[in-house]
Every structure is written in structure tokens, then in C-alpha cells.
């Protein structure tokens, strides 16, 4: 083996600046200033609107089924193969739909939180914990 290569100093990207910004903005929230209040209110409203949209999607699909069967009693006789359509909808298809709604909610909610974290200058851990 030849001589070891000369040492190179390796450094990360400058962080101090980001750190200062973060400290400043979280301090706004900590101190409950008008600016911190704006940050928190916007996050709160975004998350609430998201939650209400998911619930509306639930109400307009699963929640409308009783009304549909009440208005159109003939649906009780409809079959998909050997299975009455009510059994298929409520017994099987509702469950994957609930998972899809939940999955979409988590994506959006974590997105909102990441935006918020970026706004106040810190970063969410990248990989799932």
C-alpha cells in the first residue's frame, strides 16, 4: 500500500442560518405573538378542512346508502352474481373504501404538517418511524 491519501476535511452544508430562522419562528409560536397565532391558525384550519372533506366523502358514499334503498326499494332485488347488492356494498366493498379514505387523509395531513414544519424552519424525519 502506498501512502495514505492526505486528509480532506468534510463538512456538511452550512446549517447555522436555518437554525437561527427556526429558533426565531418557533419562538413566535412559543411566545404566542400575532405571527405565531397566524401560523397555528392556518395549520388548524387546514387540518380541520381536510378532516371535514374526508368525512363529507364518507357521508356522500356510505352515508347515502340507506336513503338510496329507501327511495328505490327495487335495489333490494338487484343481484351481482348470487349476492344481493346491499350485501356486496356493505359487506365487502365498504371496507377497502374506508382504507382508501384513511390513506388519502394520512397523505394530506402529513403533507400539511411538513409544510408547516418547513414554514417554521425545521424538517420532519424523512423515513417512517
Amino acid at each position: 500500500m502506498s501512502d495514505p491519501p492526505s486528509r480532506v476535511r468534510v463538512t456538511g452544508p452550512p446549517r447555522r442560518r436555518a437554525h437561527v430562522v427556526r429558533a426565531a419562528r418557533t419562538r413566535e409560536i412559543d411566545a404566542e405573538t400575532a405571527l405565531g397565532e397566524v401560523f397555528m391558525r392556518s395549520l388548524l384550519r387546514e387540518q380541520l378542512v381536510l378532516a371535514l372533506r374526508v368525512l363529507a366523502a364518507l357521508a356522500l358514499t356510505v352515508g347515502l346508502l340507506p336513503l338510496l334503498f329507501h327511495l328505490f326499494p327495487g335495489l333490494g332485488d338487484v343481484r351481482v352474481g348470487p349476492v344481493p347488492v346491499a350485501w356486496l356494498l356493505l359487506g365487502v366493498l365498504t371496507y377497502p373504501w374506508l382504507v382508501v379514505l384513511g390513506w388519502a387523509y394520512i397523505r394530506r395531513a402529513e403533507h400539511n404538517e411538513r409544510d408547516f414544519a418547513d414554514l417554521v424552519g425545521s424538517v420532519l424525519p424523512e423515513e417512517d418511524r
Partner: peptide
């Protein structure tokens, strides 16, 4: 019959409502 399917559906959907409104 089918009217009772609302029990398991409601018991599952309750978790979706819980997730979007209170979990975190």
C-alpha cells in the same frame, strides 16, 4: 339480514372518524 351490516360497517368507520378528528 342486510340491515345488521351497519353494525360492522359502523364499528369500522368509527375508526376513520377517530383518525381524522382525534387520533394525532
Amino acid at each position: 339480514g342486510a340491515e345488521m351490516l351497519w353494525y360492522p360497517v359502523g364499528w369500522t368507520a368509527g375508526y376513520l372518524v377517530l383518525m381524522v378528528l382525534v387520533a394525532a
